[in-house]
Computed example of a mutant assay.
Amino acid sequence: MKKEECFYLGKIVSKFSFKGEVLIKLDTDEPESYLKMESVFVDYNNNLVPFFIDKSALHKSDLLRVKFEDVDSEEDADDLMKTDIYLPLTLLPKLEGDQFYYHEVIGFTIQDVTFGKVGIVKAVNDSTAQALFEVDRDGIEILIPMNDEFIGKIDRESKVIYVETPEGLIDLYL
Score class of each variant (00 low, 15 high):
Y34C: 11
K117I: 13
S73P: 04
T114W: 10
S33G: 10
F18S: 15
E167H: 06
I106S: 11
G20E: 12
V135Q: 12
I170Y: 00
K15F: 04
C6H: 07
C6P: 08
H103M: 00
G10Q: 10
Y173L: 12
D84W: 02
I106T: 04
T90V: 15
G107M: 10
V105D: 08
V124N: 06
G116K: 03
Y173I: 05
L63S: 09
E74M: 14
L87C: 08
V121N: 09
K153W: 00
Y34D: 14
H59A: 12
G168N: 10
K15A: 05
D29F: 02
V113N: 07
M81Q: 08
F100D: 11
E5K: 04
K67V: 08
S56Y: 01
V42F: 05
D78R: 03
G116T: 00
S14G: 09
D98M: 01
M146K: 02
I110W: 09
F108M: 07
S33C: 14
P31T: 10
F133I: 03
L58M: 02
E75A: 12
V163R: 03
I140K: 08
D27A: 06
M146W: 03
Y102H: 10
E69Y: 11
N45T: 07
K3S: 09
G20T: 05
K60C: 13
V118K: 02
L80N: 13
S56E: 10
I24M: 07
D148C: 08
G20V: 01
V163H: 04
K117F: 00
V71G: 00
M146P: 03
V42H: 06
L48T: 02
I110M: 13
Y162H: 01
D43A: 12
E75H: 10
D27R: 01
T83R: 01
F41K: 05
T90L: 15
K25D: 14
Y8E: 15
V163D: 05
F150G: 09
E38S: 12
G119T: 02
A123V: 04
L58Q: 00
Y102V: 08
K122E: 15
S61L: 11
D78V: 04
I161S: 01
K11Q: 15
Q130E: 14
I142A: 04
I144N: 05
S158N: 13
P145R: 03
K3G: 05
G152E: 14
G10Y: 02
Y102C: 07
E96T: 06
V71D: 00
E4P: 06
L174G: 01
G97M: 10
G20Y: 07
V22M: 10
V113K: 04
E38W: 00
D148M: 09
E4F: 03
K94M: 15
Y44V: 00
P88I: 07
V105H: 00
N125G: 07
L26N: 04
A129S: 12
V124L: 13
D148E: 15
D138L: 08
E167L: 09
L172Q: 06
I12W: 04
E96S: 11
I142S: 00
D43S: 13
Y101N: 15
V66A: 14
S61N: 13
Y162L: 02
L9N: 02
F133Y: 04
E96L: 09
